[in-house]
Each structure stands twice: as C-alpha cells, then as structure tokens.
C-alpha cells in the first residue's frame, strides 16, 4: 500500500478536528473534535510502525498508550465540563471569559481589582 494514503487521511482528519476545536461553541463538541485529532495521530503512528517494521513495535505500543491517555483525558475533561455547567448553567466556552483581558478601562490596576469580586459573584451565581 502506498504510504501516502494513510498519511493524507491522517492529515485530513487532523484538520477536520482542528476546525472543530476552533469553530465549535459547546465544550463537549470541542472534546469530540480533540478525539478526532488524537485518532489522526494514532493512524499515523500505526501506519509508520507498519511501514518501518519496527522490532520494538514502538508505534503500536504508543498508539495503545495514546488511546489510554485519551480515555483518561475524556474522563477528566467531562468532569470539568460538568463542574463548569453546574456552576455557570452553560457549557458555552465563548461565555467563559473570566481569564480574558478586560478592555482598557480607566486604570489597569483598578480594573483588575474591581474584576475580582465580579468573577466571584459570577462563579457562585
């Protein structure tokens, strides 16, 4: 088999996942797109392992490790998303702007100081 087939498929899957991460608004859809990107990397690892006929089978072992790490990642990520949803009432990542830079207000120090209780009130609301 030509090596370009799995490589090109992995590239296209990765870029599809990249589009999803950048364009989606729901946090769980972003996690799905991250899964697509991880799968693209796994496909590359397997294809190159089969091509190189590695004696240690490093590519396939790394693929198994990546799958396990992705499972752990999705567990932690969903726990965080559920926590955010429980505290904020939405999982819309466009509205999670607590760490964003404020537009240049009257004074930077005063702006950051008055932003402090504001975010606390939002978190408990």
């Amino acid at each position: 088999m030509h090596l370009a087939y799995p490589a090109v498929l992995a590239v296209l899957l990765f870029c599809t996942g990249l589009y999803g991460v950048l364009a989606r608004r729901n946090a769980i859809l972003v996690l799905m797109s991250v899964e697509l990107m991880l799968n693209a990397v796994n496909l590359n690892l397997v294809a190159f392992d089969v091509w190189l006929r590695d004696a240690l089978h490093g590519g396939q072992a790394l693929t198994l490790f990546t799958i396990a790490v992705a499972a752990a990642e999705i567990g932690i990520g969903l726990a965080i998303v559920l926590l955010v949803y429980r505290n904020r009432g939405s999982s819309d990542i466009d509205r999670l702007r607590d760490l964003a830079e404020r537009p240049a207000g009257p004074a930077g120090a005063a702006g950051s100081r008055e932003a402090q209780p504001d975010t606390g009130a939002e978190a408990t609301a």
């Binding site: 030509h2 370009a4 091509w51 006929r53």
Partner: peptide
C-alpha cells in the same frame, strides 16, 4: 512520501 510503499 511519494515513492514509499508499505509492504503488507
């Protein structure tokens, strides 16, 4: 990888 082939 224009001239690379996997031997399956």
């Amino acid at each position: 990888f224009r001239a690379t082939w996997i031997d399956l």
